[in-house]
C-alpha cells in the first residue's frame, strides 16, 4: 500500500509541475483568457526587462494595471543579452527594456524595434557585506590580494562597466569569480563569501541593509545607459506604447530615481 501511495505522491506533483510549466510557457492565450474571465476586456502586456529593473518595473507594472483596468502586465526579467536573443528568436514580447545599448542593438538590428529611448542610467558602486570585514573604503582596496573580490563577467553589461571603471582608475584587480549576472555577484556579497564586489547602485539599494554601498569617482567613466522600446511585432502594440510613455513620464522617473537610477 505504502509503495503504491508513494509512487503516486511522486507522480501527481510531477505531472502537475509539468502541466504548470507547459501552461506557463504557453504564450498569451492562457493569460489573456483568465484576464478576460475576471476583468471583462482583459489584455496582457508582456514586458521583457533587464534583471536590475525588477523592483522598479514591478511597481510601474502595478501602476499601469490600476490605470488600465482589466489589463495584466507580465514581466520576464533576466540578463539583457538572453532577453534580446529570446526576442530575436520570436518570443511574444511587447516591450524591451535593456541594461545596455549593445543588447538593444541586437533587437533593432533585427528590425524588431525602432528608435529606442534612453530612460535611465545606472552607476557602479562597491558593495561590501554590512560589517565590511576587509575594511574596504575605496576602489584601490580591491587591488589588495587579501581582499576577495567578485566581478561580473565581461560578457555581461555590469562586467563591461566594471572593467571600464577599473581601467579608468589604472587598477589591476584579481577577482575570485566572474559572475554570470549582477544579482549573482551581489548574492556572493550578501552571503559574505567575498569582501567586495562591483555592482550597480540600484542593486545595493534593493538589497536593503544586507550590503553597504561605497561610491567612487571612477564610476563616472562607466555609466550604463538603459534603452527602452516598444517592439514592432508587439501583440499588444497600443499597450506597449502606453507602457513606454509611463516609464518616460514624470511619475515613471520618480519611481526609477527612488530605486537608485540616474534619471536624464
Amino acid at each position: 500500500m505504502f509503495r503504491r501511495l508513494s509512487r503516486w505522491t511522486v507522480a501527481v506533483p510531477l505531472t502537475l509541475a509539468l502541466a504548470a510549466g507547459l501552461s506557463g510557457c504557453g504564450g498569451d492565450d492562457s493569460g489573456g483568457a483568465s484576464g478576460a474571465a475576471s476583468g471583462g476586456s482583459g489584455k496582457t502586456l508582456t514586458v521583457f526587462a533587464a534583471a536590475s529593473l525588477t523592483e522598479s518595473f514591478t511597481e510601474l507594472g502595478r501602476t499601469f494595471e490600476s490605470a488600465h483596468p482589466g489589463t495584466k502586465v507580465r514581466f520576464n526579467f533576466g540578463s539583457s543579452a538572453t532577453l534580446a536573443q529570446q526576442i530575436t528568436q520570436g518570443a511574444p514580447a511587447d516591450v524591451f527594456a535593456a541594461a545596455s545599448p549593445a543588447t538593444m542593438k541586437t533587437v533593432t538590428d533585427a528590425s524588431l524595434a525602432t528608435a529606442p529611448a534612453t530612460f535611465v542610467r545606472n552607476r557602479l558602486e562597491i558593495a561590501v557585506p554590512a560589517d565590511n570585514p576587509a575594511k574596504v573604503d575605496d576602489l584601490r582596496d580591491l587591488a589588495d590580494s587579501k581582499v576577495k573580490v567578485a566581478l561580473c563577467a565581461e560578457q555581461v553589461p555590469c562586467g563591461a562597466a566594471a572593467a571600464k571603471a577599473l581601467d579608468a582608475a589604472g587598477l589591476k584587480v584579481e577577482p575570485v569569480t566572474l559572475e554570470q549576472d549582477v544579482k549573482a555577484t551581489l548574492t556572493k556579497v550578501e552571503l559574505g563569501e567575498v569582501d567586495a564586489a562591483l555592482v550597480y547602485r540600484t542593486d545595493v539599494l534593493a538589497a536593503g541593509g544586507k550590503v553597504k554601498g561605497i561610491g567612487f569617482p571612477e564610476a563616472d567613466k562607466a555609466i550604463n545607459d538603459y534603452p527602452i522600446a516598444a517592439l514592432s511585432k508587439a501583440p499588444a502594440a497600443d499597450l506597449a506604447r502606453q507602457f513606454v510613455q509611463l516609464v518616460l513620464s514624470a511619475q515613471g522617473k520618480s519611481v526609477m530615481a527612488k530605486a537608485g537610477f540616474d534619471v536624464p
Binding site: 577577482p175 569569480t177 566572474l178 559572475e179 554570470q180 549573482a184 548574492t187 556572493k188
Partner: peptide, 9 residues
Amino acid sequence: TITFAGNFP
C-alpha cells in the same frame, strides 16, 4: 557549480 564555486577561467 556557478553558485557555489563561481566562475573563473
